[in-house]
Simulated scan of single mutants.
Amino acid sequence: MKKTVGMAAVAALALSLAACGERAEDSPQAEEIDFKACMVSDSGGFDDKSFNQTSLAGLTAAEDDLGVQTATIESASDAEYADNLQSLVDEGCNQITTVGFLLGDATREAADANPDVDFAIVDFEFTDPETFEPNPPDNAKGLTFDTGQPSFLAGYVAAGTSESGTVGTFGGLNIPTVTIFMTGFLQGVEYYNEENDADVKVIGWDGKDGSFTEDFEDQAKGQQVAEQMIQQGADVIFPVAGPAGLGGLKAAQDAEAWGIWVDTDGCVSAAEYCDTLLTSVVKGMDVAVEQAIEDSVNDEFTNEVYRGTLENDGVGLADLGEDVPSEVADKVEELRQMIIDGEIQVG
């Protein structure tokens, strides 16, 4: 029997993903208004079963709930970001959301050049490159998520469920929005070891260096990396690599190992691997995206960064799989509150 780890947004996220492109008969769509909200994906595309897809669900929800007009552009490569943003500006978009850390520079440039358009960006905070102090344009808002917190819980789950005493994680690129997951996961395993006098090993990330597929698209690379980890004894795989990470789940499923998914509830977005998943580290990107659009519609938009945490339900864990021992599940509830209360510092 699966056990829910407290996060109200998970249920909403699952519903939004399941209903993306559909709407219940008893929920009429809002009357169309004269406002156009738009979105640019990163190179992973909107069908990545991960953060692009969930962010798109927020735009779709805004269309249904607020009546905004919408437009999207799916990026095929990193080189297209600036041109894709300009295309949406030329289309007359009032608000544009960009999805992913890699669009940070292009988003800043577009915001500076178009002060009458509001911009929001998922997984990026505008900071000075020398002082690291926040310095967003007046019309640009970062939507960030402290995914290290639920990743800590996922690491504890992985360590408490592993039978081999070895777990593995790998990323797409060595960038902060990827390594924040991996570091939290590592710290969760280390906490489990300290609390239980155990010696569960993490391969793929030591806090500074690790394993990366070097992109977010190539599932074959993800599968290859995960297979190598499984050959080294890992029986839990935690891929942080977008669509490339699906290859990691396939490797885990083929080897009858376990996986942990990221960004969305994998049992919803990648249901073919649900029987392999111990849990998923989820981010309420759809909720944050829709709120940023609503703020623009209501002339309440600010450039203050949004940060999703366990405390505000902006991040969390999906249901725990039936293979997770009950004592581990119970401890995760306790650890969640300890993180919220500041008794455990992650990152």
Rank of each mutant, 00 (worst) to 15 (best):
residue 49 K to W: 02
residue 44 G to E: 00
residue 28 P to Q: 14
residue 30 A to P: 11
residue 61 A to S: 10
residue 52 N to A: 10
residue 68 V to I: 09
residue 81 Y to S: 06
residue 53 Q to D: 02
residue 74 E to M: 06
residue 79 A to S: 09
residue 81 Y to K: 01
residue 39 M to I: 06
residue 76 A to Y: 06
residue 55 S to D: 07
residue 25 E to G: 12
residue 68 V to L: 11
residue 25 E to Y: 12
residue 18 A to S: 06
residue 69 Q to A: 14
residue 58 G to E: 04
residue 36 K to D: 15
residue 30 A to L: 08
residue 42 D to P: 02
residue 54 T to R: 05
residue 60 T to C: 13
residue 77 S to Y: 03
residue 74 E to L: 03
residue 35 F to R: 13
residue 60 T to Q: 10
residue 32 E to Y: 14
residue 60 T to G: 10
residue 52 N to G: 12
residue 46 F to H: 00
residue 43 S to R: 01
residue 74 E to K: 00
residue 45 G to L: 02
residue 50 S to N: 02
residue 75 S to E: 07
residue 58 G to V: 03
residue 71 A to C: 13
residue 60 T to N: 11
residue 47 D to W: 07
residue 29 Q to L: 15
residue 79 A to K: 01
residue 29 Q to S: 15
residue 40 V to E: 09
residue 51 F to V: 09
residue 58 G to R: 06
residue 47 D to H: 03
residue 54 T to N: 08
residue 23 R to D: 07
residue 70 T to D: 15
residue 62 A to T: 12
residue 23 R to L: 15
residue 44 G to A: 04
residue 22 E to Y: 04
residue 44 G to Q: 01
residue 35 F to L: 15
residue 57 A to M: 11
residue 18 A to V: 03
residue 43 S to K: 00
residue 45 G to T: 00
residue 43 S to F: 07
residue 73 I to H: 10
residue 70 T to Q: 13
residue 57 A to Y: 12
residue 47 D to N: 07
residue 70 T to W: 12
residue 36 K to R: 11
residue 29 Q to C: 13
residue 70 T to L: 11
residue 37 A to R: 04
residue 44 G to P: 00
residue 77 S to P: 00
residue 63 E to R: 07
residue 21 G to H: 04
residue 62 A to D: 11
residue 49 K to H: 02
residue 24 A to Q: 08
residue 18 A to N: 05
residue 39 M to H: 01
residue 21 G to S: 05
residue 44 G to I: 00
residue 38 C to V: 04
residue 58 G to N: 05
residue 53 Q to I: 03
residue 72 T to Y: 05
residue 59 L to C: 15
residue 19 A to Q: 03
residue 63 E to F: 09
residue 46 F to Y: 02
residue 26 D to L: 09
residue 70 T to V: 14
residue 59 L to G: 14
residue 19 A to V: 03
residue 74 E to T: 06
residue 36 K to H: 14
residue 33 I to P: 11
residue 41 S to V: 01
residue 34 D to A: 15
residue 70 T to G: 13
residue 49 K to L: 10
residue 27 S to A: 10
residue 81 Y to D: 15
residue 47 D to I: 05
residue 56 L to Q: 02
residue 71 A to W: 04
residue 69 Q to K: 10
residue 75 S to R: 00
residue 64 D to R: 09
residue 61 A to Y: 07
residue 81 Y to I: 10
residue 48 D to M: 02
